[in-house]
Design a protein around this nucleic acid. Structure first.
Lengths: 250, 250
DNA sequence: CCCCACTACGTACGCCGTACGTAACTACCA
DNA sequence: TGGTAGTTACGTACGGCGTACGTAGTGGGG
């Protein structure tokens, strides 16, 4: 009887599949090695360069051997996101100042996304409850211990902050990631798009947008922008927290 | 001299390329028709079913003829997003209550994303300043006329709200969109993932997460969740606006 | 009126994900 | 201890993808 590639016929989360089977020859590779190889390729050449063939070659295996470790390409993506999620250096205990801790976490997320600009494109197709994802989430909840809100609201806050970080860095990094195989540089593309935008907006059809663009000026400090935005969101939940005792109403 | 497919060697925004050339035969199709066909396919069969061949067949053209209208597949995606952005039914004038207007816009975005669940996956690879995108943005700025903040902050607010909507509906719709070619239903997959999650979290390694999941209970009202979240974000900017006159500090 | 830019599109190339078959290997059970 | 069943490794092959390129035909501006 043929072995088949072992792809599931019923829904299955990759993390429940045992890494190593009880019987049979000792596998020559493992998930961590494969995920690391895929991340290396994505960092260097973009997510589109990550194909089953390419990753297999990178770890020195035959293409189809990869399917013994990763049932579908989508699961490889899940492995990749989990691998980079493991890069968070989470302290043993939160500091007690939830606002400062969450801001630090947001900054860490921003830096991580800048290091791995392909993550946003994967994020809508990955579930997010990988082992390292759970660890990260648990730490976030620990950091929010001092916030006087119910659990649902805390989760909500985390989702909003996470979404905002993803949106900002995603936009920042999209051009760079998108134009990887194009015959021009991201800067040239940016310039062309800006030229189009000012031309289109200059027509007078979008007066408010024109004014906003004119006011924005040429150089925006992206990092300051980031801090302000995250700060606003944090202020929307548990106004002040331990940082600045209350403002007005409960 | 051969005509070539006319793909650009310098950066070019699709919207600057004239829809119809001055010379030559009358084209048999147009961008709107092509975009509509692609949207139809994506709605019915998922974004992965949208290939150049498939879209060309849908409009009744040869595969390579499509390249006369759309230089790269990525531009087809831009056309698609612009097409659905045109579905917003924007009133001539905002109501004067910026908070209510923005909430309504957020609801409209949510409904639009539910109708076209493939949009979030495209969003990180699309620039967003398409004609209908500009129209939408101009309307948002008009709605914010009554908000006492500078233009940069208004843009910031719009980005955060937009990001939150995208995050929420994106998550809601991801499973459904992802599992389109899988041999099991989204519900079965959801169940499998939930089983994994409760099993993993039950181990005691993630006490706070376990508590949060237990508190959340089985049925969360997603729409109420949505309203609360957007409301919080709006409150973070220009506290109250015309809705409820101030709370405490400026 | 004619020329040439433009449209239409068939063919072909090098990728992709992955189904399937075969051979070698090893842990367990009789 | 020998057999066997389950596993790993991986070559081959299929259908589909984006799209480069070449050719034939069309119709508006000089």
């Amino acid at each position: 009887m043929p072995a088949s590639t072992g792809r599931p016929a019923a829904p299955e989360v990759i993390w429940t599949r045992p890494e190593r089977a009880a019987r049979g020859p000792r596998p020559a590779h493992n998930r961590a090695e494969i995920a690391a190889a895929a991340v290396r390729i994505a960092d260097a050449e973009g997510i589109d360069a990550v194909s089953m063939r390419r990753v297999a070659a990178e770890v020195g295996a035959g293409t189809m051997s990869l399917y013994n470790y990763v049932p579908r390409k989508e699961d490889l993506h899940e492995l990749m996101v989990d691998a980079v999620t493991g890069e968070y250096e989470l302290p043993e205990e939160p500091s007690g100042d939830w606002r400062a801790d969450l801001l630090a976490l947001a900054r860490a997320s921003r830096d991580l996304l800048r290091r791995h600009p392909w993550v946003p494109r994967l994020y809508t197709s990955v579930h997010g409850f990988s082992p390292n994802g759970l660890r990260y989430l648990e730490h976030c909840l620990a950091a929010l211990e001092g916030l006087d809100e119910d659990d649902a609201t805390k989760m909500e806050l985390l989702a909003v902050v996470h979404g905002a970080v993803m949106t900002y860095v995603g936009n920042e990094v999209a051009t760079q990631e998108r134009s990887r195989a194009l015959p021009w540089t991201p800067l040239e593309e940016q310039a062309a798009r800006m030229a189009y935008l000012t031309d289109r907006v200059g027509g007078g059809a979008y007066p408010r947008l024109a004014a906003a663009l004119a006011n924005a000026g040429p150089a925006v400090d992206l990092d300051a922008y980031f801090e302000r935005t995250i700060g606003r969101i944090l202020d929307a939940y548990g106004r002040g927290g331990p940082r600045e005792d209350r403002g007005g109403d409960a």
